[in-house]
């Protein structure tokens, strides 16, 4: 029988991870934003990707849209960037996930590709509206590299807890 508690737990987790991103960015601002590098905390994406591979969550695309909307509205004030990117990533992952059996390495590699996709699309969108004015090479070195390293570290730490959580409740 399906466990309907997920209906409540999933959105709560989503909100916690969204606002944790902002709080961590504020607390570790010295490490994240100085010395020519910038790290983008995307814990909310980890939550979404783990839900695809281990959870049975209804209307995941809609939740991804909501997460993107909150991200845009609360953190940047420019609607329409993450709002589109998050559902897109969820859609692509759903297409891909049926070809693989979920394991630590597989999810890690797919999460790596997701992170690259999200960062690159966000960079593209922001450079169109004049917010990101660095070259593509600078973007790879100063932004994408550190962002991947940081988020994959969180992945390694949170993989087992989140996996257990989803397997228990769905």
């Amino acid at each position: 029988m399906k466990n309907y508690n997920m209906r409540y737990y999933f959105p709560i987790g989503l909100l916690i991870f969204i606002f944790l991103d902002g709080s961590l960015s504020n607390v570790f601002a010295r490490e994240f934003f100085t010395g020519g590098i910038s790290i983008e905390s995307l814990l909310v994406l980890l939550w979404l990707v783990m839900a695809i591979f281990y959870g049975e969550v209804d209307r995941l695309m809609l939740w991804a849209f909501v997460a993107g909307l909150i991200f845009d509205m609360y953190y940047t004030g420019i609607l329409g960037i993450y709002m589109i990117i998050f559902p897109l990533v969820v859609y692509l992952n759903r297409q891909v996930c049926r070809f693989f059996t979920s394991s630590f390495l597989v999810v890690l590699l797919i999460y790596l590709i997701d992170l690259t996709l999200v960062s690159a699309l966000a960079f593209l969108a922001n450079s169109l509206i004049g917010l990101a004015n660095i070259s593509l090479a600078d973007f790879f070195v100063a932004d994408l590299g550190p962002t991947l390293a940081y988020n994959l570290a969180w992945f390694a730490i949170l993989y087992i807890p989140i996996k257990n959580f989803f397997e228990k409740f769905s």
């Binding site: 902002g22 504020n26 953190y75 940047t76 004030g77 960079f123 922001n126 917010l131």
Partner: peptide, 15 residues
């Protein structure tokens, strides 16, 4: 007091 900072690299914003 500062609630949080925008995680986005391109927006140097705080709330």
């Amino acid at each position: 007091y500062v609630l949080s900072r925008s995680p986005s690299t391109w927006e140097n914003q705080i709330v």
